[in-house]
């Protein structure tokens, strides 16, 4: 029986805590469903493993009206610029949950066509492993995101989001200069980053 920890029991008057409490309990998901993890996500939204308990019931399927991008399934190289465009269209504050091993690291598909992890092209906050992850695991991933949000500070600039927009600008310059499609440009950027030992293009 030591000192009483006030932080959990009493709502502090610090502005950050209040704002973060509001944000983490009303995360509106944008389900970017591509493959099998989207079917498990349907289970999460259905009655047994209800995600609306966490305030995340409003699935608007529009990046403009959501703050949590859930990548559900494999991201292929053809899909990569689409994912970047969707993330760019979301308004801040925004977070990304990569659900499943395909979105986290490419999964079992180490091939020419699969992007080896969505974090190569957009910043990711929480990785939920599993193939597919059980609905409880997905809920745990959302809870971890909530913990992460409660540690954030309003005054800290989101450096990774700025870097992402800079990489979008670079992508567009390359598209203009070379006259290639967005998929080919993103693929070349990803391979170039891999050759230089890095992984991310943002």
């Amino acid at each position: 029986m030591g000192a009483i920890d006030l932080d959990d029991a009493v709502l502090t008057t610090r502005l950050d805590a209040v704002i973060n409490w509001g944000r983490k309990n009303s995360l509106w998901p944008m389900p970017f469903g591509t493959a099998c993890c989207a079917i498990e996500f349907m289970s999460v939204m259905a009655s047994r493993y209800d995600m609306s308990r966490f305030g995340a019931e409003a699935m608007r399927f529009s990046p403009r009206q959501s703050d949590m991008l859930m990548i559900l399934g494999t991201i292929t190289n053809k899909q990569a610029p689409v994912l970047r465009q969707i993330y760019a269209q979301m308004a801040e504050p925004k977070w990304v949950v990569a659900v499943g091993v395909c979105a986290s690291s490419g999964g079992m598909y180490r091939t020419y066509a699969t992007l080896q992890g969505a974090d190569r092209v957009i910043p990711v906050d929480v990785y939920v492993p599993g193939c597919p992850p059980r609905p409880e695991t997905m809920l745990y991933g959302v809870m971890e995101l909530q913990k992460k949000i409660s540690r954030e500070s309003l005054s800290a600039r989101k450096e990774h989001i700025e870097r992402f927009y800079a990489s979008m600008a670079r992508q567009e310059e390359l598209q203009e200069a070379k006259g290639l499609s967005s998929q080919q440009v993103v693929r070349e950027m990803v391979v170039a980053a891999g050759e230089q030992g890095g992984q991310q293009i943002w």
């Binding site: 591509t34 493959a35 099998c36 079917i39 399934g73 494999t74 292929t76 053809k78 899909q79 689409v82 079992m108 598909y109 180490r110 091939t111 020419y112 066509a113 699969t114």
Partner: peptide, 27 residues
């Protein structure tokens, strides 16, 4: 948009190792 290269991957895996890849076809 979901072409993952399963057929080419199958050429490097054994017949038994291909079974999990078939799971993910019609999921």
């Amino acid at each position: 948009y979901l072409h993952r290269g399963v057929e080419k991957l199958g050429e490097s895996l054994t017949y038994q190792q291909f079974i999990p890849l078939t799971d993910r076809l019609n999921y």
